[in-house]
């Protein structure tokens, strides 16, 4: 019916079989020289920095005893099974809490974007919720939920990791709701108009058109909250749940050696690394898309 537009031409595909001019060759040679020089400089400075750290840390008068108390391989091996078992609890709590946070966060964000006077009480409630739980330290929420709610005698006896999960969901859903709300508001209003004029209702428009676009806009921010929650699951140990941190504490009190804590810490880092890398990758991809390959 009409000519199709050819696909967007890549920047350099038009000059593939051309021999570069002397000017371009000179520019490339200069860039190669300067990038070689930067690599050498960074290599040298890394070596110098590592040497300085080694000399200063290992050279401190107390290094020997610190090494024995914090980096004892025998204690590490002995603590390994128990700490790993504890970490497995952390992972389970993390999975359940993530699902809970996703559900409560989406609900809160949706309520906060409702319009019309009838929803005023709901909006107010949601706003108060996010204010309170973003403001209150997670540790205090853990204590209040973990020791307060069971004290009401309303619920059957639950394991402490259950109340820890509830506290995590309460706190993190407040953060996630705010991130999602920002995403929802960043979707252009014309998208809502288009959805509504197709006959989609308010909820259907939100679910099918607005939320998917909002999520895309805030993925890096959400991942960041997830990384943060990954390490905060370690705080459920204050309620007595035997997670990796609590297991390390038990091991430490038996051996008077802090190596189990270092082990637990490193395991948490290892747990977070894939998510952190994924976040970086997503952020970079998004930037690339929006900048269309520009060099700045």
């Amino acid at each position: 019916m009409s000519p199709h537009r050819p696909p967007v031409t890549e920047t350099n595909s038009a000059v593939v079989d051309r021999t570069p001019s002397a000017l371009e060759l000179e520019r490339r040679a200069f860039r190669a020289r300067s990038s070689r020089r930067s690599v050498l400089i960074s290599l040298a400075s890394t070596v110098v920095f590592a040497a300085l750290v080694a000399v200063f840390v290992v050279g401190t008068p107390g290094w020997r005893s610190v090494q024995e108390t914090f980096f004892d391989p025998e204690v590490l091996v002995a603590a390994w099974p128990r700490v790993i078992e504890g970490l497995w609890l952390n992972i389970r709590v993390l999975v359940v809490a993530s699902i809970g946070v996703a559900i409560v966060g989406v609900l809160l964000a949706s309520v906060r974007t409702l319009r019309g006077p009838i929803f005023f009480p709901l909006r107010l409630l949601a706003a108060a919720y996010t204010d309170v739980f973003r403001g209150m330290p997670l540790l205090i929420v853990l204590y209040l939920v973990g020791f307060g709610i069971p004290g009401l005698g309303l619920f059957p006896r639950m394991p402490m990791e259950f109340w820890g999960t509830v506290a995590l969901v309460l706190t993190y859903s407040a953060y996630v709701a705010e991130v999602l709300r920002a995403g929802i508001e960043a979707v252009h209003p014309s998208q809502r108009l288009a959805a509504r004029s197709l006959g989609l209702g308010y909820i259907a428009s939100l679910r099918l058109v607005i939320l998917p676009q909002a999520l895309r806009k805030v993925t890096p921010a959400l991942m960041n909250d997830f990384v943060s929650m990954q390490k905060d699951v370690g705080l459920i140990s204050v309620l007595g749940a035997v997670d990796a941190v609590r297991a390390a504490q038990i091991e430490t009190s038996a051996s008077y050696n802090f190596t189990p804590y270092v082990l637990a810490g490193l395991l948490f880092v290892a747990l977070a690394l894939p998510t952190i890398r994924l976040t970086d990758w997503l952020t970079a991809r998004q930037r690339e898309r929006e900048q269309h390959g520009s060099v700045v």
Partner: peptide
């Protein structure tokens, strides 16, 4: 109102296609 809107077809100046 949703049922009424579904009986019209609307096209906007800026297309407003759903990018996702």
């Amino acid at each position: 109102a949703d049922a009424v809107r579904a009986r019209f077809g609307t096209v906007f100046q800026h297309y407003n296609l759903f990018p996702h």
